[in-house]
Every structure is written in structure tokens, then in C-alpha cells.
Nucleic acid binder design. Structure first.
Lengths: 218, 218
DNA sequence: GGAATTGCCTATCAGTGATTGACTATCAAC
DNA sequence: GTTGATAGTCAATCACTGATAGGCAATTCC
């Protein structure tokens, strides 16, 4: 083994046993599943520990707080999304890029509602009325920047930096609204889901030629 | 006093003392203030009771559960929204109607984030994996129907029922996305909020003449 | 007067996130 | 081997949460 190298690095002459990281992964996997099934707020640390097969205090050997555990799950969920978005950016271009990107975004949210929920819809607790640090946001920014990149790629250089951000943020908000509402309010009397998604994404695109972007979904 | 009339109504020979309803209003007022200041989840029943000046168990004489108290606060707040939307519908018309309506919607969400959260962003606890009835949605549906009404008024009779719902739901989702993201991710590096809101609402409107609806926010 | 009702309280419950101190197995060093 | 440090674990416990039970005082009716 590489105990010697670890010893050189840490200087303590000791190296992590190896069970730690595995346990951590195990905890994260069970936490993701439980959070998705029952919601973050209703899942207790004891339930997570019970699912993993360890005691509740043992969780705190791997995560300083429940909040930290939630944030870690959140970050990983974002990773899956950004990976997919990056793939889309590499492939398509122009108007297709934006449509495909929006489609990938919506599909991700609807196919992995658990992950999407954790990533975008969960609000971190505010310590004392002030705004908390938002590490979940850090991962989210990466996804946003990819979307912004797509906007630049589609719109070309004719827009100012601020105009790009304005457009990207507006589009992102619009997509998020559809996904989050479909996830959070499935019993609402929605119109046909596929047509709604298609029309919604279409409304985000720049007009192909001179056709109005809205009201064209029929 | 009108104890006799009350007696005739209730049939029990007794009537509420009069302090009850006042206390209830007092509780609702303090709860609304505390929820807005610190968030629903971080405000405890003891804090509410302390603010009112009564003991914590006394709350349960007026509300069967904290959830019920939250919902009552939510319903009242939404009453304000629907009232405002109704007023807008009566006053404006055409393109202005939709812009003013969207503005009223966004302003409400941002000024009453907790009420908005309860109605649209909080997923009710699912008893056993299935989806629960959604009482919070009821208040929100009325707001949606008003929005739909506005769509009809603006778009005229040229659209089918389904096309109207399609458009209304897409627009609603778009507005919701902006509001919910601004609420849930306040630390995100947003562009100037006012301009974002303006551009976002503008993107929902039908093109004034032939100008593209997007990319015109600068 | 007595009886019933209202409004409120103290005391308490189970469950929550989090901390403490101790126990066990492992592994390096002698 | 034996020793000693360390990683990993857990029972016991803390302060706090939402919610309940039972009792006490004032009011209202007969």
C-alpha cells in the first residue's frame, strides 16, 4: 500500500483506514433515496442512519451537520445535470442547440425529480434571518453558466454581457418554472404534458424567421 | 348582548365569549410577521405564542396544528393576490393587462415569499409514497384561473380552449419560475432584479407589432 | 347558591438535530 | 508479543420541536 506516501503527506505516520470513504458514499446514497422519497424535512438523521445500518451519531463522523449532508447530495445531483448539458453543448448548435438544451434540462428534471428537487427546489435554512451561505448554489452556477454559454453560442456576439445574462436568466427561470411546477403539483389539471413542454421550450427560442415565438404551439 | 341569538343558532345555550376571535386574529398577525421575517420552518409555536403573550399550548385552542395556522396565513395572503389580480383584470386591457397582471403576480410572490412558498413551492408530506391531497394548491388555483381569464381577454376568441390552457399554463410556469428562483436562490448573482422582471414579463407578451418578443429587453 | 362552560396554564409526551465520553478493532513501532 | 495511537462506532444525553392531558380560575347560566 501507499502508507508511506500518505505518511509523508500527513506527517502523522497514519493513513485513513479505507472504510471511511465507502461509508460516506453509502450514507450519501441512502440519503438521496430517502430525501427523494419522503422529502428532506421529513427524513430524520435517525432514519438515514437506520437505513445505512449505523447509529445516528455516527453520521456526524462524516458530515458535521445534516445541512452539510443535504448540500453534498445536492452538489452531486447538479453534477449529473451539468454533465448532460455539457454533452449537448458539444453536439448541437444554433437554434437546435437551445431547443435540445431546454429539452435536456426538462427531461433531466422530470426523469430525476428526486435529484432536481434536491438541487433546485430545496431551500437551505437561514441561520438568523440573514441569508445563508448557499453551497448548493455553487453547483447550480455551473449549470447556469453552461446555459449562458449556449445563449452566447446561439445569439452570437451581438449582445452585451448584461443582455446575455438577462436573457439566460430569464430563460432559465422559465424552464425551471415548468419543471418545478410539474414536479411539485402533479395533480394540477395540466394540459398534455408533451405539448406543454414543447410549446414552452418553443416560446424561449428566438423567432425562426419572422414568425411570432408564442401562440405558435398549436 | 346577543347571547340569545347565538343560543338560538348554536342550540347549546352558550355563546363564544368574544375574546376568542380577537385572539385568533392576534395570533395570525404575529404569525404572519414572524414567518415573513424568519421563515416558516425556523419559527416555532413557542415563539409565536411568546409574541402574542400566551402559552404555547393555547395556540392549539385556535388552530388544530401548526400546519393549519400556516395554511390560514397563506390563504389570507393569497386573498390579497387574487383581489389584486381581479382589480387588474377590471382596469387594464390588451397588452397592458397581461403586463400589469404579471407584475402583480411577481410582486406578490416577492413581497409575501412565505405565502407563495406554501402555495406553490412546498410539497405536502406524502403519507406512503403516494401524493397527498393538496389544500395549499386550492388557494393558488384561483390565482391561476384569473390568469387564464386574462389570457382569454387579451388573446381574444381566436384560440381553442386547449390552446388557451396551453398558453396560460406556459406563462404561469414561466412567472412561477422567476418568482420561485428569486425566492429560493437569493444569493445567486442575478442581474438587476427590476430589469430581469421587466424583461421576463415582456417575453411573455405577444409581440406588439412585428418586433420579436425576446431579445428586446435592452 | 350550584353547575356548566370558556380560556388559559403547567407538566409532559415523543421525536428532532447535535454532543459527549467510552468502547473496540486495527495497525505502526518497539 | 506488547504498547500506544487512531479510526470507527455507539449508548446516553442535551436542548428544542410540535402536540396532548389534566387542572385551575373566571365567567355565565339556572
Amino acid at each position: 500500500m501507499d502508507m508511506d506516501t500518505a505518511r509523508l503527506i500527513t506527517g502523522t505516520g497514519r493513513k485513513p483506514k479505507g472504510m471511511g470513504p465507502e461509508r460516506r458514499e453509502e450514507i450519501l446514497a441512502h440519503a438521496l433515496r430517502l430525501f427523494s422519497e419522503h422529502g428532506v424535512h421529513t427524513v430524520s438523521t435517525r432514519q438515514i442512519a437506520g437505513a445505512v445500518g449505523i447509529s445516528q451519531p455516527s453520521l456526524y463522523a462524516y458530515f458535521p451537520t445534516k445541512q452539510a449532508l443535504v448540500e453534498e447530495v445536492c452538489k452531486r445531483a447538479f453534477g449529473a445535470l451539468t454533465e448532460r448539458m455539457r454533452a449537448v453543448i458539444g453536439q448541437a448548435s444554433g437554434r437546435d442547440l437551445m431547443a435540445t438544451m431546454g429539452r435536456a434540462y426538462v427531461d433531466f428534471g422530470l426523469s430525476q425529480p428526486d435529484a432536481y428537487r434536491v438541487a433546485f427546489m430545496i431551500e437551505v435554512a437561514r441561520p438568523d434571518g440573514g441569508l445563508a451561505q448557499d453551497p448548493a448554489l455553487m453547483a447550480g452556477i455551473e449549470a447556469y453558466l453552461l446555459h449562458r454559454e449556449a445563449v452566447v453560442k446561439v445569439m452570437g456576439g451581438g449582445l452585451s454581457e448584461e443582455a446575455i445574462d438577462l436573457l439566460a436568466q430569464s430563460q432559465w427561470a422559465s424552464l425551471h418554472g415548468l419543471v418545478s411546477l410539474l414536479i411539485a403539483r402533479p395533480t394540477f389539471p395540466w394540459v398534455d404534458r408533451e405539448r406543454l413542454i414543447e410549446a414552452h421550450i418553443d416560446s424561449l427560442l428566438p423567432p425562426p424567421t419572422a414568425k411570432p415565438s408564442r401562440v405558435s404551439g398549436t
